[in-house]
Design a protein around this nucleic acid. Sequence first.
DNA 1: CCGGGTTGAGAGAGCGCTCTCACAGCAGAG
DNA 2: CTCTGCTGTGAGAGCGCTCTCTCAACCCGG
Lengths: 336, 336
Amino acid sequence: MSQAHERPTLEAVARLAGVSRATVSRVVNGSPKVAEPIRSAVRRAVEELGYIPNAAARSLVTQRTDSIALVLPESASRVFSDDPFFPSIIHGVSQELDAADKQLVLMMTNTVGGYERVERYTTARHVDGVLFASTHGVDPLPGQLHRLGMPVVVSGRPLGRSPVPYVDVDHIGGVRAAVRHLLDSGRSRIATIAGPQDMVAGIDRLAGYRAELRGSDRRSIVAVGDFTRESGATAMRQLLEDDPQLDAVFVASDLMAHGAITTLRELGRRIPEDVAVVGFDDFDISRYTDPPLTTVRQPILELGRELARQLLRVIAGEEVPPAVVLPTELVVRASA
Amino acid sequence: MSQAHERPTLEAVARLAGVSRATVSRVVNGSPKVAEPIRSAVRRAVEELGYIPNAAARSLVTQRTDSIALVLPESASRVFSDDPFFPSIIHGVSQELDAADKQLVLMMTNTVGGYERVERYTTARHVDGVLFASTHGVDPLPGQLHRLGMPVVVSGRPLGRSPVPYVDVDHIGGVRAAVRHLLDSGRSRIATIAGPQDMVAGIDRLAGYRAELRGSDRRSIVAVGDFTRESGATAMRQLLEDDPQLDAVFVASDLMAHGAITTLRELGRRIPEDVAVVGFDDFDISRYTDPPLTTVRQPILELGRELARQLLRVIAGEEVPPAVVLPTELVVRASA
DNA sequence: CCGGGTTGAGAGAGCGCTCTCACAGCAGAG
DNA sequence: CTCTGCTGTGAGAGCGCTCTCTCAACCCGG
């Protein structure tokens, strides 16, 4: 119990090794300007005492904390249990940070006062940088922190002008490929279930659908969901009311696509014979639906990793591009 | 940019308010021994300068960091994208910690050297306590940290003797209810797909199955999977080879149950008419399978919350029970 | 054999905060 | 009016580390 309080300090190591604190510090931090015999003496002393540097003391003087915050938006919590998006982001970020020997501090703005807490915490220089897995509307916090000189990178192109560097995936390219695939396979009435129009992912995916249809003589048939399964089921019902003859639907998220499939089944439509369905995300689970879902793969894990990489660059004082856009890819399975 | 370096210190606030550093510190930390007029003068100064305490400096003297580590085992990463278990744990832990104004530091032992990193980091008193979402085999680290006087709580009853307090769910009770349900509905050949036998969750769920069958005259029919969908599909095939007449199966995880259902379908068995299927977990997605899955609900979010609560108690120096077991509950849907 | 340069180690000043201790001021008791 | 006992405030000593500055030791060329 009390052992914990008797942690050896630099001082103790220095005494044991018969050198000064400064020298121990040099060895511990890998300075090259220490002669070999002394270096190994210090190493031995460190080993013997089980010395581990005190992070707080180090931070106090270096002004670094070697940890970075990942802020998940309010909505993350709601979706968390069913949607592997945030878990994958976390996972990707974690991989890169581990490699850089940085720590990951997770913050959610879901609880009461969460937003303020995030602000307080991050501006307190508790962390060296902040990552926003922000996907909703206009969040002023990233810009604010950026202005204060805090390294910040956000996931997803921000709505409106923003000087904060971001990483996103090529929504439009992926969607266009999906719609083109439907056109190429001879579908004539291609509807879409769009995502929320206060999110870039929702906006861009709808834009991609419209852009690709514009080149053909097909008219657009649109319903809007909120990326949840339930909303997909409801939207599908609406679409079929609007146009009972539709023979294809591009759904802006896999979860909504699952909902849409359920509805189509209930109403006796065969997939893909009567209605072709294409999703967007390529969640693992989409390989196991019946039929397996044709969908647009976005590299979520890679998105997390790239996010972390960019932030580490900013922290290191390197120049980073204002935007990194990762490619998406159509994965053709049985549903279209 | 440089603003960040010009953060006001206690000193600055004290000067502006015309008091000493000590008094400002008292106000900031909510000590009751400060007269009202002075208190509000300090508050005003804090406000005006936008003062935010430096966490490192504070930690250095208090020996507290107000953050706790959540360690996810290697296997978490593999499962991460498809299995909402760890996300839910994270979510639950996060909720409690937010309420206590503590920070969550996520660590994964998945990367090379991860284990050592975790050890280094946590023993460096970087955090006030450590939570292990450990579910695999025998992990010496929790015990080690515990011995060093570090507050530790683990999720899942540890294999073997361990003085570390844990939180777990009532696997056996849940499984027995599930098997009883199958017995009560007249099933006569009840098989099981068990989880890995190096995990308590795997062991206990198999034990529950055996215990409940023992009371009847049914014999046990067992296959073993590793909690993944694929292993469930494979195990189901084995079971049907072993006993083509089986009319029910208790599957030790929802994901494996999904795999089992796929296999049953492929082999032309109707669910639940020919074979009844019961899972364990109650993942969201199990409501949407065809047919909706009867399963044992374990309160994962609550598990995360309880984990955090116990740890906070240990940190506060309170006595905690060596084990907390949360109830499980059979959720009857269409598959059995 | 001396001067200048180079290298390696130590001394010491903080980083920003908390907390103990000393003490000023004041009320009430004697 | 003095003494005791509060209460509220300030002074100052660190917490454990890094980093600059100083200086000793040694090398080499002239």
